[in-house]
Amino acid sequence: MTSTKTYGLVLTAFGAAIIAVLAQITIPLPLVPITGQTLAIGLIVTILGLKYGTLSVLVYCLLGAIGLPVFTGMSGGLSILVGPTGGYIIGFIPTALFMGWYLNKFGYTYIHGLIANVSGMMITLAFGTIWLKFVADMSLYAAFMAGAAPFILLEMMKGVIAAWVGILVRHRLLNANLLKLV
């Protein structure tokens, strides 16, 4: 039993670490930067599934919330979560829950991975846009134009990549007996 718990902790920590590393890939824009975070969320949940994928996202968010520099630009702290980009980070949690639930229900195939990842990217954008509206005191239209519209195509492309790579890696790890989802 202890080895099962330890294995789950290692998977969760590994997932959170991958998200933290990919979060450092960034292209700065005036209000909301383009980052590798959403790609990382998609990859981790697609590879690890609902339980460990979502736990990885929760750990990542908590590590950043307590001040560890895991968010974009080696930043962390509650000020990030209550700032203009906080809604995107908070949105990672329902994104992971939805993606993991969807993949568990419909199967870990490329088509379902694609649906889960693209939908997940849109969930993150929706949370971020609504948050941006309130934090930056913008109209919903202005928040959408600043915080979602410029990213929709890019997020869809990240969803395609996360689905393709995630499903491929998941199947290879399972086939090689290197991933045991308990």
Score class of each variant (00 low, 15 high):
residue 25 I to R: 09
residue 25 I to E: 08
residue 25 I to S: 13
residue 27 I to M: 11
residue 27 I to S: 12
residue 28 P to E: 14
residue 29 L to D: 07
residue 30 P to S: 11
residue 30 P to L: 12
residue 31 L to T: 13
residue 32 V to N: 01
residue 33 P to A: 13
residue 33 P to T: 12
residue 35 T to E: 05
residue 37 Q to K: 03
residue 40 A to L: 04
residue 41 I to A: 06
residue 41 I to C: 05
residue 41 I to E: 01
residue 41 I to G: 00
residue 42 G to H: 05
residue 43 L to S: 00
residue 45 V to N: 03
residue 45 V to Q: 02
residue 48 L to A: 04
residue 48 L to F: 14
residue 49 G to R: 01
residue 49 G to W: 02
residue 50 L to T: 02
residue 51 K to R: 14
residue 52 Y to A: 03
residue 53 G to K: 00
residue 54 T to I: 06
residue 54 T to Q: 05
residue 56 S to H: 04
residue 57 V to S: 02
residue 58 L to M: 11
residue 60 Y to I: 06
residue 61 C to S: 12
residue 62 L to D: 10
residue 64 G to Y: 04
residue 65 A to Q: 06
residue 65 A to W: 06
residue 66 I to T: 14
residue 66 I to D: 10
residue 68 L to H: 11
residue 69 P to H: 11
residue 69 P to F: 14
residue 70 V to C: 10
residue 71 F to E: 01
residue 72 T to Y: 06
residue 72 T to C: 13
residue 72 T to M: 10
residue 74 M to N: 12
residue 75 S to T: 15
residue 76 G to M: 07
residue 77 G to V: 13
residue 79 S to P: 05
residue 80 I to A: 14
residue 81 L to W: 08
residue 81 L to T: 06
residue 82 V to D: 06
residue 82 V to S: 13
residue 82 V to I: 15
residue 82 V to Y: 12
residue 84 P to D: 10
residue 84 P to V: 13
residue 85 T to V: 14
residue 87 G to W: 01
residue 89 I to V: 13
residue 90 I to S: 10
residue 90 I to V: 15
residue 90 I to N: 07
residue 91 G to M: 04
residue 92 F to E: 02
residue 92 F to K: 01
residue 95 T to D: 05
residue 95 T to G: 09
residue 96 A to Q: 02
residue 96 A to N: 04
residue 96 A to F: 04
residue 97 L to K: 01
residue 98 F to W: 07
residue 100 G to A: 09
residue 100 G to N: 04
residue 101 W to P: 00
residue 101 W to I: 10
residue 103 L to Y: 02
residue 103 L to W: 02
residue 105 K to S: 15
residue 108 Y to S: 07
residue 110 Y to M: 12
residue 110 Y to P: 03
residue 110 Y to I: 15
residue 112 H to G: 07
residue 113 G to F: 03
residue 114 L to I: 05
